[in-house]
């Protein structure tokens, strides 16, 4: 599904960000990426949705290989995954509904299919009552739900979330996290970078700990090696 094989990432001005990273994510899995600031979590996520390409090594995502990938292939791959960010990235001059419809419209979804789909998505994230509001009229948690609805518009096989609760208070964080778990329970894999250690500890899901551009801990490997030690 997602596979990193000896991936190195070097940025022009800051140097090595990822240093020989290898791991895979299976279908329907929920994976946390944790680690200190600057560890390389966002870089890993960017490599997953091909916003960046590895300097060395290979990334495979749903059959698309980073080596020699074209811009067109990247566009098509992104229709199979959803991405959400800490800062939501909604269009301020469009309503909730229009923000979600936008994602369907720009990939050429037939107009008559857009409205029903948008309604379903907004119901799924619990925002059907706010469909004609503008982002600035929503709370942070609600805005993130809109972003999630937009990310789900193409029925992705994986949802990539870069600190989706980073800007939210505890209550909103729990709500959004529960939504992500529900989405995962319905079959969509989730790869989520977070600083929220409490959230990670309580959840009992797979954890990849990143430090200085390396995977320093993978709970899945740990399990395989010493099943009795897992919490």
């Amino acid at each position: 599904m997602i596979r990193f094989a000896n991936v190195f990432k070097e940025y022009p001005r800051t140097g090595v960000a990822l240093n020989d990273v290898s791991f895979s994510v299976n279908k329907g899995e929920f994976v946390f990426l944790t680690g200190p600031s600057g560890a390389g979590k966002s870089s890993i996520l960017k490599l997953i949705y091909f916003d960046e390409l590895p300097s060395r090594g290979d990334v495979w995502v749903s059959g698309t290989r980073s080596k020699g990938v074209t811009r067109k292939e990247i566009s098509l791959l992104r229709r199979k995954l959803g991405v959400v960010f800490q800062d939501f990235r909604l269009l301020e001059d469009r309503t909730v509904e229009q923000n979600v419809a936008f994602a369907l419209d720009v990939i050429g979804t037939p107009p008559e299919k857009i409205h029903p789909k948008v309604s379903r998505l907004l119901t799924q994230v619990g925002l059907s009552s706010k469909s004609t509001n503008y982002p600035r009229e929503l709370s942070g948690g609600e805005q993130q739900r809109v972003a999630i609805a937009r990310a789900l518009a193409n029925d992705p096989f994986v949802l990539v979330a870069d600190e989706p609760t980073g800007n939210l208070d505890d209550r909103a964080t729990r709500g959004v996290f529960q939504l992500l778990r529900d989405i995962n329970a319905a079959g969509t894999a989730v790869v989520m970078a977070t600083h929220n250690i409490d959230l990670v500890k309580r959840a009992n899901l797979r954890v990849l700990e990143i430090n200085r551009g390396q995977v320093v801990f993978d709970s899945a490997e740990e399990k395989r090696r010493a099943p009795e030690l897992t919490p």
Binding site: K72, S75, L77, R78, V83, F102, A103, V106, I107, N154
Partner: peptide, 17 residues
């Protein structure tokens, strides 16, 4: 630019943009 980067993010092709 904001719109265009979101278009790219959700999979719009260069041609479409």
């Amino acid at each position: 630019s904001r719109e265009i980067s979101i278009m790219r993010l959700v999979g719009a092709t260069d041609g479409f943009i």
